[in-house]
Nucleic acid binder design. Structure first.
Lengths: 226, 226
DNA sequence: TATTTAATATGACAAATATCATATTTTTAA
DNA sequence: TTAAAAATATGATATTTGTCATATTAAATA
């Protein structure tokens, strides 16, 4: 079993506040998992009873709406934790987590994490700050959905993917979403998303090669996103 | 100056975890304020440096979007706290707070509240749970905005106002929002909102008398909201 | 490799929603 | 009280977006 003390991603999450003793104890009680692309880490409504620390890979957090369509609420990547909200609220998770690429994750049981809350104030503050950041992001997202057009939201989302997850050697966006997933991220019909991507392509804003998307004119996209 | 120890609304917020000594100290450092309907408690971008405890009244939390329109993110009422996220993140507030009716609020300076985080674990957990609740609510709201029609969102919002804030003796909704505010809550144009209210009225789902709205057929509204 | 299935693409059309114009009512303030 | 301003209401129309149909291409699998 790998040691948390030597794990680099720990430094990027709330877990960075843990002491050496806490890390040693953590190494013993955590379990490591390989998640293949497309596999579900947990599903909306499930009792997770702990948190996942993402060592590698990206996943989507989705919520099923009344009409049966999934909406992608957030993308989460290496260094971040999953399932904090649910654990603190002591409720089933309200979102599903599905791997967008192969992932390595570690599961830390609730009993262990709750101990940190009691004894390690810095850890508590870190978690709180993370959740506060999520809340602010959610507020922003909400206003965008309410006030911006689909075109603006698509431009913004492409820029977000670019800025947050970077690009490959061929300049294409690193996160590869299907048209369907992209649509469920910006909150529109798949066909509308495809159509707008085609438009952007024809306007020279982006370049489409199969699933690959290259942002050609970032300034124009920024202007479009307002 | 009124005493926090005897204040009833305290029991409805995270402050319920405070000890007698903490409450006595709080009474000394808090300031009480009367806010008239329409007045601003704080504005997006401001440094608030503390939290507000709502003793009486209701306010709206709004966010200005790129197109210059306000969006109502949330309504907050007596017993709840304002400005927690901003204080914990140590950032300016991301939302504006405006009174929807006359209000009584108390301001508690940051220095005081941060002390509770250090010394009172139950208080920390209460705040965390509240923010987690807000985050879950925000996720739900986001999916609704992305997937539901304006009609569905209007029906849902009317039911929400009814269930959360109750009704007057004449059965009309207690929170009186202008058509403009209602529109900015469901994320649509004012005219669309007015038109749909007219439709609901003609269908017998609601009854409109000036600004007053009476829900006549709650089951039909529920069905409409899906 | 051949066959099936899923994803992407695009046209045609329908439905939802926004915008603009204008009338009417209510509220505010001179 | 009356004039001005703001809020509400409704029609006409434009725009945006969704839905359905149907190619086309790419991916999965027998």
């Amino acid at each position: 079993m790998s040691k948390c003390e030597q794990c680099i991603v720990r430094e990027f999450s709330s877990l960075k506040a843990l002491t050496k003793e806490e890390l040693l104890k953590l190494s013993d009680c955590k379990t490591s998992h390989i998640i293949k692309k497309g596999e579900v880490i947990f599903e909306e409504g499930e009792n997770v009873n702990g948190i996942y620390c993402i060592k590698d890979g990206i996943c989507k957090l989705t919520k099923l709406s009344a009409n049966g369509k999934d909406h992608i609420v957030k993308l989460v990547t290496k260094g971040e934790l999953l399932g904090q909200r649910s654990m603190i609220s002591d409720e089933p998770v309200n979102l599903s987590a599905v791997a967008l690429e192969d992932m390595q994750v570690c599961f830390i049981p609730k009993s262990e994490v709750m101990g940190y809350f009691d004894k390690n104030n810095q850890f508590s503050m870190n978690v709180m700050k993370t959740i506060c950041g999520d809340l602010k992001e959610a507020d922003d997202h909400m206003v965008n959905l309410a006030q911006k057009t689909v075109k603006e939201r698509l431009a913004e989302t492409l820029l977000y993917l670019h800025d947050t997850f970077g690009k490959n050697n061929d300049n294409s966006l690193k996160v590869q979403l299907s048209r369907d997933e992209l649509a469920s991220m910006i909150g529109t019909a798949t066909e509308s998303c495809i159509r707008l991507l085609s438009d952007f392509n024809k306007l020279g804003l982006i370049e489409l090669t199969g699933k690959k998307i290259v942002l050609k004119d970032i300034n124009a996209l920024k202007k479009m996103a307002e």
